[in-house]
Design a protein around this nucleic acid. Structure first.
Lengths: 348, 348
DNA sequence: TTGTAGGCGTTATCAA
DNA sequence: TTGATAACGCCTACAA
């Protein structure tokens, strides 16, 4: 694999010094290099197919214009709607400021090991964005933050349960079960089922606790049987709802943690001989592209993940430009009312 | 922003030479470094929070373990199901071989400028994967390939119309309109509508040509009115189908280029007072998670984009390990028969 | 307006 | 088993 041509070769070819080449290429308007020399450099660059070596440049300037994205998961990246929406916002914003994105590999199994391994390979990045995933419990998260703090580089945490520390964090909070379940309660529902994604992990624990806390306020004494897990899969959600409807035949509403699972729940309800929303109301989450297409159109919660990504990028950019203040951004979701939820007073 | 500790500092701290530290850290089992020295190095690394600087290391070894992902688009990345599925496959495979992914920013507007700009910043990567997008026509694609060839690094093109050159390419071909339209023709349909995504661009042109070619074989003399554009959006697809059904009331089938658009088409058909598949058959594309949830369940074509990503990564890995042979991989999709298409002989 | 020289952090070669 | 030393490609004083 032929070696790239270097700045030295360009310099020789153009009959100038490497310094002139470097200075000119980094600022075409410089007065430091004469018009004639500029032309010769241009020509040499073209003829030799010169491309700047980012690594050498980064090494020299101590700035890479690269942001490391740390996602502690062993699952495929780019395969999850939430993560993708977040990344989309991050990329758009960072890109417009000339920053590239860097994803490191890891062969480790635990969240902590993954983060460590990724950071090990990553010194040289200008900053980091740390995701939290279902794999992380609070202990892991704190350790990961400690680890990332050691790099002394600017960083932002994203979508992590709130951490009590002076770090940049973007939180998407109180949207999880709370908003959906409260909405159902407000509509008069008392027989509620909760359909979560994956069981285990800090996130599921957090949602579970929250569900009980809210429902208890309404003197409802629910237990774990009412919490179901659909694994973010259509078929699993369908099956689990179908059998749950046998266990809880009085069910009037289901709060789902994704629109896909909500759509599957609707199908299960219909196939159980009931109708939505007349017999049972369903609320989804994430306002996905499909949410207007279900029958009835899905009432759902828009989490604004794209905007969360933008916010994270903004915090990082602030930090990168020397702003020492750490900030905490709390994003709230919006309830999108469509036709899958009915007030229970109307119903009777 | 505190500077990172370097290998020199670790060496000093441990009372050994930088060379020993480097060698030990890259191979903990080396005989080159004594047991005592190893321990002291370990200790120093921990105490100084040493992290290797990838850039310095890459500069020295001329290997970065980083792959540049070149996607000539001005749209947000990570916001497109196809791209994401491709990336997912790429990441999984490359990651398991220790390669990281690098996404470069670009402020340019044209496909060619974007690729150029991204490559300009990217010398130092071990290899590249070049996507094609709706933005590229054949001329652009060829120029982009020329540009990337100049880097002399291994690269693979993905999802590009076949290029007549000895380069590594992964093609997802003959699945576009062909498979879907042929299937409808085989089922006896002659009144066919084609619902594409975005208009303009080489891809749309290619699909259009293909559509006419296939239907002409069956003595159908279709014109451009039968080709509709849904912009991969539910609402646009719904509207365009609804009005098309007025123009072509005899329509018996619609071939859609995405499951989302197919679901929207189904809704439009129902709202027009017709039924699926009794009156009109619908075929989707991509076997998305939602495809079992539409009513009726969607017959669709699984494009195996994840596998295409894996294949691209495999080709690149071969190339990276010195395999000079260029390969061309042609992937075919699978037809997933569910309930949205009916044979027209049965119908009458 | 230009060239020389030293350094960024790591690795590889060589001599000890 | 170990330590100097040079080199990777680029940038930036500094000197001219």
């Amino acid at each position: 694999m032929g070696s790239m041509s270097s700045i030295k070769e360009v310099a020789k070819h153009a009959g100038v010094s490497p310094a002139s080449v470097s200075i000119y290429l980094n600022n075409k308007n410089t007065k430091r290099v004469g018009t004639e020399a500029k032309k010769r450099i241009e020509k040499a660059v073209l003829e030799l197919n010169y491309h700047k070596n980012v690594f050498a440049s980064s090494l020299s300037t101590q700035k890479s214009k690269l942001i490391g994205i740390i996602i502690p998961t062993i699952l495929p990246l780019f395969n999850n709607d939430y993560t993708n929406a977040l990344l989309s916002g991050i990329q758009i914003r960072l890109s417009s400021f000339g920053y590239g994105l860097l994803f490191f590999p890891s062969s480790a199994k635990s969240s902590i090991e993954i983060v460590k391994e990724q950071l090990e390979k990553s010194a040289g990045c200008d900053g980091y964005i740390l995701f939290s995933t279902g794999f992380c419990d609070m202990k892991h998260i704190l350790k990961n933050i400690t680890e990332i703090e050691k790099t002394k580089k600017p960083f932002v945490t994203l979508n992590i349960p709130e951490v009590d520390a002076a770090i940049n964090q973007v939180l998407i909070k109180d949207l999880d079960t709370t908003t959906g379940v409260r909405y159902l309660l407000d509509k008069g529902h008392r027989e509620i089922l909760l359909l979560l994604g994956r069981s285990g992990g800090e996130h599921a624990k957090y949602l579970r606790k929250d569900f009980f806390r809210i429902t208890e306020k309404h003197d409802l004494n629910f237990n774990d049987d009412r919490i179901l897990y659909g694994n973010y899969s259509a078929i699993d959600s369908y099956n689990v709802i179908k059998s749950a409807l046998r266990v809880f035949p009085a069910t009037t509403s289901i709060c789902c943690m994704s629109d896909l699972m909500a759509s599957a729940a609707i199908k299960a309800i219909k196939d159980s001989g009931k109708s939505v929303p007349n017999d049972i109301s369903v609320i989804g989450r994430n306002n996905s592209l499909y949410s207007t297409l279900s029958e009835p159109a899905l009432t759902t919660i828009d989490l604004h993940m794209h905007e969360a990504g933008l916010s994270a990028a903004n915090l990082l950019l602030d930090s990168l430009s020397g702003d020492a203040a750490t900030k905490k951004i709390l994003l709230t979701g919006s309830l999108i009312e469509r036709n899958s939820v009915q007030s229970i007073t109307q119903e009777e």
